[in-house]
Simulated scan of single mutants.
Amino acid sequence: MKRYCLTLDLKDDTSLIAEYEAYHKSVWPEVLDSINGSGIIGMEIYRYDIRLFMIMETTDDFSFENKAAMDADNVKVQEWEQLMWKYQQPVKGAIAGEKWVLMDKIFQL
């Protein structure tokens, strides 16, 4: 099993943040199927103010490249991603078009 931690910011608008959280209480089944079918076995998203923090646990053979290729061919996932971009904004230092940015682990106990 592998663990990845990623970050992303939301737009600083309380009504948009509330909408974003409401969508995540009932994520579309096609999006959940895509997540489950890609080798992701656990996922949690936390929020502090506008900052999001995602923890993903995956199978050892999971790859971001394969997940991106699967998503590119999935109309409903693309629709979800486009909708979510209404609420999201890149963190400082993100590459153009990059959403979730992989974080570096700096400590472990």
Rank of each mutant, 00 (worst) to 15 (best):
M54L: 15
Y87W: 10
A68M: 04
K86A: 07
I50A: 00
I35K: 02
D49W: 01
F64G: 01
M70D: 09
Y20C: 09
F62Y: 10
A68H: 08
L102D: 00
N74T: 08
V101M: 01
L83V: 13
T7R: 12
P29L: 02
K99L: 10
G37T: 13
K99W: 11
V101I: 10
V27C: 12
V101S: 14
E44A: 14
S34T: 14
Y48M: 08
F53S: 02
T59N: 01
D9F: 04
S38K: 10
D49M: 11
V31N: 06
K2R: 06
L32Y: 05
K86G: 07
M84R: 03
L32F: 06
K67L: 09
K2V: 15
V101D: 01
I55C: 02
K99F: 12
Q89N: 00
D33N: 06
M54P: 10
K25N: 15
D104M: 11
K105Y: 09
K76D: 14
E30Y: 03
V77R: 05
L6I: 08
D49I: 06
S26F: 02
I95W: 05
G93C: 11
M1P: 11
D73N: 09
L6Y: 11
A94R: 00
E98T: 07
Y48G: 00
R51I: 09
T58F: 01
L16F: 14
A94M: 09
D61K: 07
W80H: 14
E57H: 11
K76S: 10
C5V: 15
N36Q: 12
A94K: 07
N36F: 08
K86M: 06
S26N: 07
S34K: 02
M43P: 02
D60G: 03
I55F: 05
S26C: 09
G42E: 13
D12K: 05
T58N: 07
A69D: 15
F62L: 08
K67R: 12
I106T: 06
F64P: 01
E65K: 06
Y23K: 15
A18S: 09
E19R: 12
R47I: 06
D12E: 05
A96I: 03
V27R: 08
A96Y: 02
Q108M: 01
I17M: 11
E98S: 03
V101G: 10
V75N: 00
S38C: 11
M54W: 14
C5S: 13
R47W: 09
K2Q: 15
D33G: 00
K92T: 15
W85V: 03
A68W: 07
W85E: 13
D60C: 02
F62V: 13
W100G: 01
G42P: 10
G39C: 12
I95P: 08
W80Q: 02
W100E: 09
N66V: 09
D104C: 08
Y23F: 12
V75Y: 05
M54D: 11
Q88L: 13
I17F: 04
L109Y: 15
W100Y: 09
